[in-house]
């Protein structure tokens, strides 16, 4: 692994893994405690429409996906705030429409030669230097937002009605963080692909939640777990020549089942 770092693509992959872990740790925590996993999956899949638009119109990939993800996120947030009981249906529809749009636009794009598999399953080994800068920028924004809005975030996630009574602009902050989710998805898709992105956002925070006494601790622990999963997945993928995104997710899933097994044994012991 050390000698592999002589290659630029390996150094980029390593940095992408670290930034992705940080973003997943913080944004993933917000997703898990607010039960926004389905919404995240919806945005992730809808971004396929953005890939289609980018290739069809020949605009940069990042603009197409970012634009599409943000529009999908705004519609979903509006539905979530206005008609919560119907939110899952709307998210499901946007999820499917986004993917269908992407597929049709790719059909209509003559002679595209982009490896579409890399969007679906990610390719951390093909992350470019400009992608790294995007991820670094997003990491800084995410950390700043999490620190600045920490108390508001805590109140909104735990008891939004009380937060409203205290005069916290609940809808605005909610909206801001869902937009951050959308931007994060676009970035993380480079690493693990849009089909698997949901696992990286949910598994580390889910494990961290059980051992945390505060939201901040959960964010830090989720970040560290994501680093562990990303780097060991990357190492396995490199060593055995496997698809990096899927390897990272399977490592995370192994962590998930180990934590469940530990709980099971521990609970059995305390019960007897």
């Amino acid at each position: 692994m050390i000698e592999a770092l002589e290659f630029e693509f390996m150094r980029n992959a390593l940095l992408a893994g670290l930034f992705a872990s940080l973003i997943c740790g913080i944004i993933g925590t917000f997703i898990v405690v607010n039960r926004l996993v389905f919404l995240t999956g919806g945005i992730a899949h809808a971004t396929y429409g953005g890939i289609g638009i980018a290739l069809f119109f020949g605009i940069p990939y990042i603009l197409g996906t970012l634009g599409f993800a943000l529009i999908a996120a705004m519609i979903m947030t509006a539905v979530l705030l206005k008609a919560k009981s119907r939110a899952d249906t709307f998210i499901g529809v946007i999820w499917a429409v986004g993917m269908a749009t992407g597929i049709i636009l790719l059909d209509l794009t003559s002679g595209y030669n982009v490896n579409i598999m890399s969007y679906l399953f990610g390719s951390i080994l093909a992350v470019s230097t400009s992608d790294i800068w995007w991820m670094a920028g997003l990491s800084i924004i995410t950390i700043t937002a999490a620190i600045f809005f920490y108390r508001d975030l805590l109140a909104i996630s735990y008891d939004d009605e009380f937060a409203r009574l205290r005069g916290v602009p609940v809808n605005l902050i909610y909206f801001l963080f869902i937009c951050l989710i959308a931007v994060s998805i676009v970035m993380i898709v480079r690493v693990v692909g849009l089909i698997l992105v949901i696992a990286l956002f949910t598994i580390p925070p889910y494990i961290a939640e059980k051992y945390s006494n505060s939201l901040a601790m959960m964010m830090v622990m989720a970040t560290l777990l994501a680093v562990l999963f990303n780097l060991s997945g990357l190492w396995l993928a490199y060593t055995y020549n496997l698809t990096s995104g899927a390897t990272i997710i399977l490592v995370a899933a192994t962590g998930f089942f180990i934590s469940m097994a530990i709980d099971f044994i521990f609970l059995n012991k305390t019960a007897s």
């Binding site: 405690v33 108390r151 805590l154 109140a155 996630s157 735990y158 008891d159 009380f162 937060a163 205290r166 939640e209 945390s212 006494n213 505060s214 939201l215 601790m217 959960m218």
Partner: peptide, 11 residues
Amino acid sequence: FPISVIDIVLM
């Protein structure tokens, strides 16, 4: 939800 007593009161 991972939250301590004091964090709730601080809301």
